[in-house]
């Protein structure tokens, strides 16, 4: 659990982060969204003390994060940044092993961990381990960057626009990979982004920041349904709102009784995808099947339209 209590960072007279308090539950993903200059990156960097706060306290599992020297604290927290920041003079394997080496793990344990992470990220340890970062594609570099952040099995992972430099297709894949790995390791993740789409997709909770202040901190559905201010509303995007709301729900939760003609949609797909398919194929309803192909019922255009309306 991460408790941020009244944290403030001032440079000269201007408060970049102004009296922010929030609690991040263990094994969840909190996404901090905001425009550039909103203080979201500074807030993130105060958690692993790359920036020292002017006032306030941050506690990790109850312990003040100032109870250790900064560098020791940072070894216990994963950190992944935009453009990956891989060390160009070290091989992929050496890059991933950075923090375990700093912590003095023995060789066998480091090798095992590096191999595990590379396999997890679909990079063959034999083929990719000895390569240098500039020999990899952008998507591979990004994966190595996240693998390096996870190497020392941190409980907390901080990510600063980790997918910012990726093209849309690779970005979607990277987001899915991260969700899978978060479930597997149960890591608490705090992710900074300026992309509301990404925030709604990834976050268990979303924190919206504007001019150094925390404007709203709530579940995605609530942010979409009840934006706390005009600023949040703009950020959500009035024209995108219904679709984002639908993207939060699974088709299986919108299933009605009955049957429909044509190709079926899996129950795990998002309701947004179902709506898109309905509109595109011009059908009033789609059959829904679960992963084994068993029919679950149907999803209708009318039903989805009702679901996309502003909740009461």
């Amino acid at each position: 659990m991460i408790e941020i209590e009244g944290i403030t960072k001032r440079y000269d007279a201007t408060a970049v982060v102004d009296d922010v308090s929030m609690v991040i539950e263990p094994r969840t993903i909190a996404v901090i969204v905001g425009t550039s200059g909103s203080g979201k990156t500074t807030l993130l960097r105060m958690i692993n003390r790359l920036v020292e706060p002017t006032a306030g306290v941050i506690k990790l599992d109850g312990a003040d994060n100032r109870s250790l020297p900064g560098y020791e604290l940072r070894r216990s927290i994963g950190y992944a940044i935009q453009g990956h920041g891989l060390f160009p003079h070290r091989t992929v394997a050496q890059n991933i092993a950075t923090v375990p080496v700093l912590l003095g793990w023995d060789k066998a344990r480091i090798k095992a961990r590096v191999d595990e992470l590379m396999t997890l990220y679909q990079l063959d340890p034999e083929a990719f381990g000895p390569r240098y970062p500039h020999e990899l594609s952008g998507g591979q570099q990004q994966r190595v960057g996240v693998a390096r952040a996870l190497a020392a099995e941190p409980n907390v992972l901080l990510m600063d626009e980790p997918f910012g430099a990726l093209d849309p297709i690779i970005r979607t894949k990277a987001q899915e990979d991260l969700l899978t790995i978060q479930k597997r390791f149960g890591t608490t993740i705090i992710l900074v982004t300026h992309d509301m789409e990404e925030a709604v997709h990834m976050g268990d909770k979303i924190a919206v920041m504007d001019a150094g202040k925390l404007v709203q901190y709530a579940k995605p559905a609530e942010i979409l349904a009840k934006p706390a201010s005009a600023f949040v509303e703009t950020l959500v995007g009035a024209s995108e709102r219904p679709f984002r709301l639908l993207s939060l729900g699974r088709v299986r939760d919108a299933v009605e009784k009955g049957t429909a003609e044509g190709e079926a949609i899996p129950g795990d797909a998002s309701q947004r995808d179902a709506l898109a398919e309905l509109l595109w194929s011009g059908r009033p309803a789609l059959p829904v099947r679960d992963a084994d192909g068993k029919p679950l019922g149907r999803v209708t255009l009318d039903g989805l339209v009702k679901r996309s309306a502003r909740p009461a």
Partner: peptide, 15 residues
């Protein structure tokens, strides 16, 4: 030096 590499080095907990 590339800024993001230095940031990563600090973030990894190097002294």
């Amino acid at each position: 030096l590339p800024a993001n590499v230095m940031e990563a080095a600090r973030g990894a907990g190097m002294t």
